[in-house]
Simulated scan of single mutants.
Amino acid sequence: MALSLEQVPVAQTGVYPTPLQPLERLSRQLGGARLWVKRDDLTGLAFGGSKTRSLGTLLGRALAEGANTVITCGPTTSNHVRLTAAAANQLGLKVVLVLRQPKDGAPALQGNMLLNQVLGARLVYAEVDGLAGLEPVMEQVAEALRGQGAKPFIIPGGGYSPTGALGYIGLVQELAQQSQAAGFGIDAVVFASGSGCIQSGLLLGALATGTRLPVIGLTINRSVAELVPRIHHDVQAAAALIGLDGHLPADAVQVLDDYIGQGYAIPSEAGMEAIDLLAREEGLLLDPCYTGKSMAGAMDLARLRFKPGQNVVFIHTGGTPGIFSYADALVRPHGDAAHSAQLAGSAH
């Protein structure tokens, strides 16, 4: 059933549907459930990413309210921040990015930070202990802009808001249609959960469309104790915007913290192994901050929790530019690469 969102303004910021592809070679190696990848890294805007979906509803509201400037925030590694800058440009809006100042000085102009510069966004750095400290800085920036005659619209970090969650209803509809066309039922959907917006949106989409969709978020920064109530609240608030009952059973919000490693944006060994494996076996590129860690979790779940004949869908939420910020961690001599290095040395 397609849900009508006529009461929700949506800006056209992406290209949909994104592909749903089988990971045949990887699935054979794992020997458990069959793995699929939903290619939300191919949303068509500035290297893509799932945040394009939440920006559709958020920027739709901004335009409806007559805004001419968008303000959002995040760490320097944020995919949401980069995509907000790109989407704002596409829609003719000015954009200000409030970024957490790294403790070790100015961030390197690489990955998402390089793209923020290329996109021409105005950058404001703030020395705060946590990402929550960026919210009042955005308010200060907005107040200053109002004094200059601008009409700013603030988007919370990661797009986390009831309006942002509405953007993922389309993702649920796509998964339902694509899996039906491919002739299989989805036993689990697995992805990196950061702000909680994507997970809230998927659960909301399942409620709104009557789709059975077991959702498992793999946290890459927040604790389970923080994320679970946050998602419950967001689903209820987003459902209210479209006249639905957003109450979920207590166990409906599944979040695992087994793959967070040492913390946000710090590469983990399991994540790096997943990056290597997917690149070499499937030609699929992941990043150390988000998708590498969550793919490590998806592989474990497919092999250990689910059985042959079942189907696990991994949502590639994007983050490809982040690869270039982790060159030192990614380039590691092993396998054929190490052998090639030995051959090159013997040629001299």
Rank of each mutant, 00 (worst) to 15 (best):
2 A>G: 08
3 L>E: 02
5 L>C: 01
6 E>S: 12
12 Q>D: 14
19 P>E: 11
20 L>Q: 09
24 E>D: 15
25 R>W: 07
25 R>F: 09
34 R>P: 02
37 V>F: 10
39 R>S: 05
40 D>G: 07
41 D>N: 07
42 L>C: 09
43 T>R: 02
49 G>Q: 12
50 S>T: 10
52 T>E: 02
53 R>S: 00
54 S>I: 00
59 L>E: 02
63 L>V: 02
66 G>Y: 01
67 A>I: 00
68 N>C: 06
69 T>Q: 09
70 V>T: 00
77 T>V: 09
78 S>D: 05
81 V>I: 15
81 V>R: 06
86 A>S: 04
86 A>R: 06
87 A>C: 15
92 G>Q: 01
93 L>C: 02
96 V>T: 01
98 V>T: 01
105 G>F: 10
111 G>N: 05
112 N>R: 13
122 R>Y: 11
127 E>H: 12
131 L>Y: 13
131 L>N: 13
132 A>N: 15
134 L>W: 04
135 E>R: 15
135 E>K: 15
136 P>T: 13
137 V>F: 07
139 E>G: 13
142 A>V: 10
142 A>P: 08
147 G>P: 09
148 Q>P: 07
149 G>V: 05
150 A>I: 10
153 F>A: 07
153 F>G: 06
158 G>D: 02
161 S>A: 11
164 G>Y: 02
174 E>A: 04
176 A>Y: 05
179 S>E: 12
180 Q>S: 07
183 G>Y: 05
183 G>R: 08
185 G>E: 15
188 A>Q: 07
191 F>W: 00
194 G>Q: 03
194 G>C: 00
195 S>K: 00
196 G>V: 03
202 L>D: 08
203 L>I: 15
212 R>K: 10
213 L>W: 07
226 E>S: 08
227 L>F: 03
231 I>W: 00
231 I>E: 00
231 I>L: 01
236 Q>E: 15
242 I>R: 03
247 H>P: 06
257 D>P: 07
258 D>T: 13
267 P>W: 03
270 A>V: 09
274 A>L: 12
274 A>R: 12
276 D>M: 12
279 A>H: 09
279 A>K: 08
286 L>S: 01
287 D>E: 14
293 K>S: 06
295 M>E: 02
295 M>C: 03
300 D>A: 14
305 R>P: 05
305 R>T: 14
306 F>V: 12
307 K>L: 13
308 P>K: 01
308 P>E: 14
310 Q>S: 14
311 N>I: 08
312 V>L: 15
316 H>S: 07
317 T>Y: 02
318 G>Y: 08
319 G>N: 01
326 Y>S: 03
327 A>L: 13
328 D>I: 06
329 A>F: 06
330 L>G: 00
331 V>I: 12
341 A>Q: 15
344 A>R: 13
346 S>T: 11
346 S>R: 09
347 A>W: 15
347 A>C: 13
348 H>D: 12
348 H>N: 10
